[in-house]
Design a binder for these strands. Structure first.
Lengths: 272, 272
DNA sequence: GCTGCAATGGAATTTTTATTCCAATTGCGT
DNA sequence: ACGCAATTGGAATAAAAATTCCATTGCAGC
């Protein structure tokens, strides 16, 4: 039987489909067309569902998978599921290994962090919701002033926001804890707040966001998990999941999001 | 049993998770955390896989689904399969889609910055000189104290250094210009300075680096061009060229370099 | 119009996966 | 330390899904 090798990637699979789709019997052609049109369904459907979608019987769809070089539907589905699920490497394990091998060379370490950044960026592209992004930008550019709060790890993101907004002439205030001063009363109705925090969430950031909301200001949240404590506070929730490496998290995706926000807001504000 | 209604959307589900996650037994809490961190996996995994990911037995995960208001795992999975069906082509396709959403639209802008970040990371991997990196790490981990100076755009990198070194218990001082105070006399022989600046170079950063060098401290420079004004000051020159989009430059590569430096220095310092 | 071969549909079978149930264990209040 | 209730792990059961097999259908060449 399997004179043909099983495709190792979705691209390979599509190539093979193109190759053979000319000389395919009617039902199998239907399968090919349906798969080509709805590749995203494969990962989450059963053979029965795929077959029905293609207008054929399950056994026909089954044969189609085999013609493609798979042992059956399950094997083909596995390929799609693996591609679909973000495959973060298991960094806990990797870091462990790196430590074992004599702390590893710094270049190897750097390579890992570069990889982590790359994955985070890819993931951002896949998960960002354009509508929320649009809404956040509208809110920020309509605000009289943009307040920024982000502490600890998120402080560097907050600092970048402050720098970049400043450069785009958007009125901005960076909230920090220098001198133990409480600056939350500077937030007024009609203003907007960008609150940035990642697990373990910083209490001060959340409190400031809550206070701002209560005082009639809009809040745009940048956070990591869907279960972030900022979620109850605002619908404008931009989630960025960064690959972390041990205790250290990449900030690549977060900063890319930041700069995109700033430029979009700056452009809109200027147009008015 | 089902005193609670079954969630009709992922938002509803997450709300409920938030509600109850406080008073949840250990294993069910593990499930909640795992689901919150990898919501995308649910659609394409079996209970057994999810349970393993959460570090619990399948029956525990099962109970978790029921606590959430579902009849079982299958019903919960159906919710995720339906809503995630539209998302998720691969990275390249997705990025293309974001770009197509109209030149100047926020999504398109974000796509450009993501791409810029990726290019920067790739470039960093190719151009970094392992020997300079090694030498920089050695210098920093031998220092009594690490001073950090970076202003304007580089300030967010400096802030990140300060945060991360602090977390690794490396004695650190972040130099800023708050209050117009001059803190350069805090730098003593045997200390090291990380100076970060990009074109157009910030005068204060360069002056501080010069002063430090004159006073007998080592300087590690993070900068963008070979012709950087920091070059005459120190041989420990880590150059990072970031891709830019418009006037805005990514910081992805610089931050990846920063975290790699910190972890390597932290590991070495601890080993002593 | 018959023959033989490829294609098809449907039913039977096997495998995988979800779900339930119960016994063992843990942790808590007394 | 004891008993009780809640929690947990594991095995048994039920359900669903994949896969195979075979009888039937359609179709090309003779």
């Amino acid at each position: 039987m399997a004179g043909v090798s099983t495709p190792a990637s979705i691209e390979e699979l599509l190539d093979r489909m193109l190759d053979i789709s000319g000389g395919l019997p009617k039902r199998l052609k239907q399968c090919a067309d349906y798969v080509a049109a709805n590749p995203d369904r494969i990962a989450v459907s059963t053979v029965a569902e795929m077959a029905e979608g293609a207008g054929v019987k399950p056994s026909a769809f089954m044969r189609f998978c085999q013609v493609l070089g798979f042992s059956g539907f399950s094997q083909m589905q596995r390929l799609f599921r693996e591609t679909y699920a973000q495959n973060w490497p298991d960094y806990a394990t990797r870091l462990e290994k790196l430590r074992e091998s004599g702390a590893g060379s710094p270049s190897a370490l750097l390579a890992e962090f570069i990889e982590a950044g790359r994955l985070s960026l890819e993931n951002l592209a896949k998960t960002i919701d354009p509508r929320t992004l649009d809404a956040a930008i509208k809110t920020l550019s309509d605000a009289h002033m943009v307040h920024i709060i982000g502490l600890r790890r998120a402080f560097s993101v907050a600092a970048y926001f402050a720098y970049a907004f400043e450069k785009m002439n958007v009125p901005t205030m960076l909230h920090d804890t220098v001198g133990g001063l409480d600056s939350r009363h500077a937030i007024r109705p009609g203003d907007a707040v960008i609150a940035i925090t990642f697990a373990p969430y910083t209490r001060e950031t959340i409190e400031l966001a809550e206070a701002a909301r209560a005082g009639g200001a809009e809040v745009v949240a940048i956070t990591d998990a869907i279960a972030s404590p900022l979620r109850p506070i605002t619908p404008l929730l931009l989630t960025v999941s960064e690959a972390d490496f041990g205790d250290f998290r990449s900030l690549s995706a977060t900063l890319s999001l930041a700069v995109a926000l700033v430029v979009a807001v700056g452009a809109r504000a200027r147009a008015k």
